[in-house]
Amino acid sequence: MTINRNIAIASASKLPAALTVWRLIEAGRLAATDRPQSVLDFWARDAADARSLVTLDTLLGFTSGFSGGDVDAGCIGSSQISLADCVRQIHDGGLQAPPDTAYDYGPAHLQIAAAMVQACEGRGFETVMREVLLNPLGLTLETRYPLLGGDNTRIAGSLRSTPAEYGRILQALLAGTLVQNRAAYLADRIGDRTITYRPAAAAANDIDWHYGAGFWRVCNKPVYDAQCDANPVISSPGAFGFTPWVDFGNGYWAIIAMEEPIGVGSDPSRSGVTLQIQLQPLIEAELSR
């Protein structure tokens, strides 16, 4: 492994994908309160239909009411169907909870958000991502979605990158050059909402991580509390172990660069998170010397 090796980062894709949408919001090209029906002609418009209450912010925070679990992707990622048609299938499949009442970690939310971006901008999601996020940071085609999925690639989990290039995103986040309203961006999107599904990596090790806009709000305590809000640390671990995080309070970012296969008895994502938890106090101790 080197810092320039191109690897599959799996769910670490969620942070740059959601950050792309957030930058469009801050640029005024979208609004956090925008609803899918404003740009997707097939989306429910009847106020009596709960799907009409979904907003871009609930999609970024995974509280839209759609679920399916992280591994039950359905049409997501299939090159045999377009992004718009896949999102239509997700829509027609219905909600599992009223919008903004439950948190469910899964790929549907960002797939819908990407379809909204595509419809609003008139261009593919990755093209927009490159314009508003990757190119300004000088990232190359080493950071990209695979061509095999067409425009329906798995937005929340199929990005490839290198540790060096992904690190530029974290550095810019830490420096404050990517986000204008940090408080709104870092806000806890779970709060007291029901947690329908959360992967083991974010609930193991006797920890209670919450969620923001495409990233975990790290809280290495059995119960998430106000102290976790006061000292924001965000992370976006992937299924193959790639584990990036930013510690705003202590002023550093880090990446555990890993690409391990998932097998029986093997959970690279959980291993990455465990290592992150072990490294955090060691890094803080060194920074305070």
Score class of each variant (00 low, 15 high):
4 N>M: 13
7 I>C: 11
7 I>W: 12
16 P>W: 05
17 A>Q: 00
19 L>T: 07
19 L>H: 06
19 L>R: 07
20 T>I: 06
21 V>F: 06
23 R>L: 10
24 L>C: 08
24 L>E: 00
27 A>E: 13
28 G>V: 12
32 A>L: 15
32 A>S: 15
35 R>M: 11
36 P>K: 06
36 P>G: 08
38 S>M: 13
38 S>W: 10
41 D>R: 08
42 F>G: 02
44 A>K: 11
47 A>K: 15
48 A>F: 09
48 A>M: 11
50 A>D: 15
56 L>Y: 05
57 D>R: 10
58 T>I: 10
59 L>T: 06
59 L>G: 07
62 F>D: 06
63 T>R: 04
65 G>D: 12
66 F>W: 14
66 F>A: 11
67 S>I: 04
70 D>N: 09
75 C>P: 03
75 C>N: 06
80 Q>L: 13
80 Q>R: 15
81 I>H: 02
81 I>N: 08
82 S>C: 01
82 S>W: 01
82 S>H: 07
83 L>C: 03
84 A>K: 09
90 I>F: 03
91 H>E: 13
93 G>F: 09
99 P>M: 08
109 H>P: 05
113 A>R: 03
116 M>F: 00
123 R>F: 02
124 G>L: 00
132 V>S: 01
135 N>S: 11
144 R>H: 12
145 Y>C: 00
147 L>N: 14
149 G>E: 01
154 R>F: 06
156 A>N: 03
158 S>H: 01
159 L>E: 01
159 L>I: 06
160 R>K: 11
162 T>L: 06
163 P>V: 12
166 Y>E: 07
168 R>H: 10
169 I>K: 06
170 L>Q: 09
172 A>K: 11
172 A>W: 08
173 L>P: 05
175 A>Q: 15
178 L>M: 10
178 L>A: 08
179 V>I: 15
179 V>Y: 14
183 A>I: 15
184 A>K: 13
187 A>C: 11
190 I>D: 00
194 T>L: 11
195 I>M: 04
195 I>Q: 04
195 I>F: 00
197 Y>V: 09
197 Y>N: 07
201 A>N: 05
205 N>L: 06
207 I>K: 02
208 D>Y: 00
208 D>F: 03
208 D>W: 07
216 W>S: 04
216 W>E: 05
221 K>A: 03
227 Q>N: 02
227 Q>K: 03
234 I>V: 01
235 S>Q: 04
236 S>P: 07
241 G>F: 05
242 F>W: 05
244 P>I: 08
247 D>P: 07
248 F>I: 08
250 N>A: 12
250 N>Y: 12
252 Y>F: 12
252 Y>P: 05
253 W>H: 13
254 A>T: 14
255 I>A: 12
259 E>M: 14
259 E>S: 14
264 V>P: 14
267 D>L: 12
268 P>N: 12
271 S>P: 11
272 G>P: 05
272 G>F: 01
273 V>P: 07
273 V>K: 00
274 T>I: 10
276 Q>V: 02
280 Q>L: 07
280 Q>M: 07
281 P>L: 00
282 L>T: 06
283 I>Q: 06
286 E>G: 10
286 E>Y: 10
288 S>M: 07
